[in-house]
């Protein structure tokens, strides 16, 4: 049995640690502090936590005002509301002025599950990646989340970090994650094709590599947690070496990791790319069922790799 943990739980824990280390850290939420786990920070540091109520656009403005006054402002909600409802606030009042606001959203993607389409953000990476000065990080598991949040707090300027609701398999052993901003990480090497994944899809892609190995196919697996800025050098080298890339994300096939990979590869070293992601309308269901419905399981990834190497 694989150990499981939710990335939002890791966020909540590391926020409390950061709060103890740095009095300049402030946290905002929009009535979802129980779900996003910012409530843990609120309990420890009530004077540095601001609930904006169900008013996400104002929350972003409050975060900007605190940031411009010298604070490191973490603002959290569900990914749908934090990015979709507030896109223009983020674009104009956080991104362009390059403020020290860290938007960390939980409940991204289809694994939100039963709440259904209104709560399943599958456009957030595209939205945030298009905002000037925003950097977009999608950690693979709880261990990587801890590392990412620490780096995000220590790096000046705006970030979007995408977290999940569900407990997902622990991918990295404690202390074994090598996340660096703007860099991809080669998880396993191969000969026949390359898989580039982010978030919970890294685990699925790793399982896909095991399935493929049984059929004599080996694939390089890259964890591209730093979706933006993306690791152009590693992608160019990968495209040149393999000529075939499959990308996987729990996000729309439009504008997310696959698009970022395709844009980068097209400019540096064009090759065949298969983008796996959400291309059907979202709906309610259990996370596992929905991953099957959208074609995001290890079996789906293995099938795509076989097609591309055939």
């Amino acid at each position: 049995m694989v150990e499981k943990a939710a990335t939002r739980d890791a966020y909540g824990k590391v926020l409390v640690e950061l709060g103890k280390e740095n009095p300049n850290i402030v946290v905002l939420d929009a009535d979802l502090s129980g779900s996003t786990r910012t409530g843990w920070f609120a309990k420890e540091f009530p004077e540095r936590f601001f609930n904006a109520g169900i008013a996400e656009q104002n929350m972003i403005g409050l975060a900007a005002g605190l940031a411009v006054s010298g604070k490191i402002a973490f603002a959290s909600s569900f990914a749908m509301f934090a990015t979709g409802r507030c896109w223009e606030q983020i674009r104009n009042t956080v991104g362009y002025p390059r403020l020290n606001v860290k938007i960390v959203a939980s409940h991204a993607g289809v694994t939100v599950g039963e709440d259904g389409a209104t709560h399943q953000a599958v456009e957030d990476i595209a939205l945030m990646r298009s905002c000037y000065n925003l950097r977009v990080i999608v950690p693979a598991d709880a261990e990587e989340t801890k590392m990412v949040i620490r780096q995000v707090a220590a790096s000046e300027g705006p970030f979007y970090v995408r977290l999940s609701r569900s407990a997902t398999p622990a991918f990295y052993a404690p202390g074994k994650c090598d996340f660096r901003l703007g860099k991809g990480s080669i998880i396993r090497e191969g000969q026949d094709a390359a898989i580039v994944a982010c978030g919970i899809m890294v685990y699925e892609a790793d399982k896909a590599c095991d399935l493929l190995a049984r059929e004599g196919i080996s694939a390089r697996l890259i964890n591209m947690a730093s979706v933006w800025p993306i690791d152009k050098d590693l992608l160019a080298e990968t495209a040149k070496k393999f000529g075939k890339i499959v990308t996987c994300e729990e996000h729309s096939v439009i504008g997310g990791l696959g698009s970022a990979v395709a844009e980068s590869v097209a400019a540096e070293c064009p090759c065949q790319i298969k983008i796996l992601g959400v291309s059907k309308p979202c709906q309610s269901g259990s996370p596992d069922e929905l991953m099957k419905y959208h074609g995001l399981t290890a079996e789906d990834i293995a099938r795509a790799v076989k097609q591309i190497v055939a």
Binding site: V26, E47, R48, F50, Q57, N58, I60, G61, L62, A63, A64, G65, L66, A67, V68, S69, G70, K71, A73, E88, Q89, N92, T93, Y96, P97
Partner: peptide
């Protein structure tokens, strides 16, 4: 210029955030 503005409704949110920070400090 204390904060970039132009898209209406946003400057006042930032002002509230600045007032919160001034109280904190």
């Amino acid at each position: 210029v204390e904060i970039s503005t132009g898209s209406l409704g946003q400057g006042i949110s930032v002002a509230v955030g600045m007032a919160l920070a001034a109280k904190m400090d």
